[in-house]
């Protein structure tokens, strides 16, 4: 465990806490894409299949449980909670995310570390996580004004993967066995998707103005 990866995991956790805060504090999920949240729940469920069969560390197990529980709780809130679900932008959140699931699964069948059940699902979860943010970014562009907490949520989500890239660079130079090309390349693509968001987030921070993404 190196500082970049720990910082990345903490930033990821912060992004989830910010989202939960937004939903709990405003009792609203406006500006949040349910499709992205469903994709994240699928990412965690397919990546942490070894939750009960393998044990790496207390930290690893606890974080996996937190990510699975929080992502399912957010999906539940947006689908079932009587007050929150009313503020869901159903007619704006129209990204056909089933294509993202299909594309990731097909790619996982072609590109994997070992042709084994868990490995295929692990690769699937890596590819899916890279593109899972797309419905959310599209929704932000469509919904025009973005409330602060939603902006911070997406920012921390992008920052977590950027820190993971530093972690992979660090491990590349220090850990001779390190060979996680699937995670590295996919992580680079994932972080690149945030590039323009980071730019507009920085501009809104510098001008102390509302975050606005061009349509």
């Amino acid at each position: 465990m190196n500082i970049f990866r720990f910082a990345g995991d903490m930033t990821h956790l912060i992004s989830i806490l910010v989202l939960l805060l937004k939903i709990y504090a405003t009792k609203s999920c406006s500006g949040i894409s349910l499709k992205t949240q469903e994709l994240y729940a699928l990412v965690f469920l397919t990546r942490y299949l070894d939750l009960f069969t393998g044990f790496i560390s207390i930290y690893n197990t606890v974080m996996k449980l937190i990510f699975i529980a929080s992502s399912l709780a957010i999906v539940w809130c947006m689908r079932v909670h009587p007050i929150v679900r009313r503020s869901y932008d159903k007619d704006l959140d129209t990204f056909r995310h089933y294509f993202l699931v299909a594309a990731s699964f097909i790619l996982a069948l072609l590109l994997y570390e070992k042709f084994a059940f868990k490995e295929i699902f692990w690769a699937f979860s890596i590819y899916l996580e890279a593109i899972a943010i797309l419905p959310q970014l599209v929704l932000l562009q469509r919904s025009g004004n973005v409330d602060n907490l939603t902006g911070h949520y997406v920012f921390f989500l992008g920052a977590y993967r950027a820190l993971y890239i530093l972690n992979w660079i660090y491990r590349y130079f220090t850990d001779i066995h390190f060979s996680r090309w699937i995670a590295c390349v996919s992580g680079l693509v994932q972080t690149a998707l945030y590039a323009d968001f980071f730019y507009y987030y920085y501009i809104s921070w510098r001008n102390n103005a509302k975050l606005k993404l061009p349509a």
């Binding site: 990821h12 790496i56 570390e113 060979s179």
Partner: peptide, 10 residues
């Protein structure tokens, strides 16, 4: 190869 077995990253 040890690394690819134990997926130690989240």
């Amino acid at each position: 190869k040890a690394d690819s077995e134990a997926k130690d990253e989240l």
